Simulated scan of single mutants.
Amino acid sequence: MKIKLLLFLFFINVSYPALADNGLVSTQSPYTVPETTAKLKQVLKDKGMTLFAHVKHSESAKEAGVDLRPTELLIFGNPKIGSVIMSCQQSVAIDLPQKFLVTEDENKDVWVTYNSPIYLAARHGINMDSEKCRSVIEKVSKALNAMVPK
């Protein structure tokens, strides 16, 4: 069983090189923040996901008199999948629904960042020996990676 977990973690490390120690996956987008956000919203719609909120942090910051580079957050999910993950370990609900953070850095590069489901599984002690739990975490990991505009 531990061999399966080690192989799984190796697969994730090789497949998602942008995964940082803090559990965030960041992928560069060739589009502007508004274009990237629009593309993500369309992908979510096409996949039948629920978009719970679109937070335009930089606009709110401007209203508060704070200068913030373009920063937008999409909060989304699918209860059919998220509920399965929560049934594996209920505490993961604190990190769900999933989010895409779209930002522009100081070099004007645009990034899409999200919480790695693998990291969330480890953080919440989800039993990756369970076929049900492992398969849904793998599925969500692959789906999130595929949704990011490249």
Rank of each mutant, 00 (worst) to 15 (best):
T32F: 09
I75W: 10
V33F: 01
G77A: 03
H54I: 02
Q28S: 01
T27V: 08
T27I: 06
D67V: 13
P34K: 04
G48W: 01
L40Q: 03
E59R: 09
H57Y: 11
G77T: 03
F11N: 08
P70G: 02
V55E: 12
K45H: 14
V55F: 15
L44V: 04
Y31T: 00
L74Q: 10
K56L: 14
D67M: 10
E63T: 10
I12Q: 03
S29R: 00
V84Q: 15
L19A: 02
L73Y: 08
T32Q: 11
D21R: 12
S26C: 04
I75G: 13
G65R: 12
A64L: 15
H57C: 07
Y16S: 05
G77Y: 05
L9A: 09
K80M: 02
S58F: 12
V43T: 15
K47I: 02
N22V: 06
Q42D: 13
D67T: 14
S15V: 05
M86S: 12
V66H: 14
L40D: 03
S26A: 06
E63F: 11
S83V: 05
S60F: 15
G23A: 05
L51G: 08
G23T: 10
F11I: 07
A18C: 03
A53C: 11
P79K: 04
Y31C: 00
G23R: 12
K47E: 12
I85K: 07
E72D: 14
V84C: 10
L68G: 06
G82P: 09
S58T: 13
V66F: 15
F76H: 02
P79V: 08
L73C: 06
I81M: 06
I85P: 10
F8N: 09
M86E: 06
Y31V: 00
H57G: 07
P30C: 01
Q28W: 00
M86K: 07
F76N: 04
F10K: 09
P70H: 03
T36A: 02
L9N: 06
G48K: 02
T36R: 01
S26F: 01
V43Y: 14
S60C: 15
V55D: 14
L24T: 09
T36M: 03
P17N: 07
V43K: 15
Y31I: 00
S26N: 11
K41W: 07
L19I: 01
D67G: 09
F10G: 07
D21A: 13
M49R: 13
F52D: 11
M86I: 12
M86Y: 06
V14A: 06
I12F: 06
F10T: 08
M49N: 13
E59A: 13
L44N: 01
S83A: 03
T36L: 02
I81H: 00
A18W: 00
T50N: 14
E59K: 11
F52I: 13
G77E: 04
K80L: 04
Y16E: 09
S83E: 02
K39V: 00
Q42K: 12
D67W: 10
H57Q: 11
M49S: 14
T32N: 07
P30G: 01
T50M: 13
Y16G: 01
V84M: 13
F10C: 07
P30I: 00
T36V: 04
I12H: 08
S26W: 00
I12Y: 08
K47C: 04
A53V: 10
V84Y: 12
E72S: 11
I81K: 03
L24E: 11
E59Y: 08
L44R: 03
P34W: 10
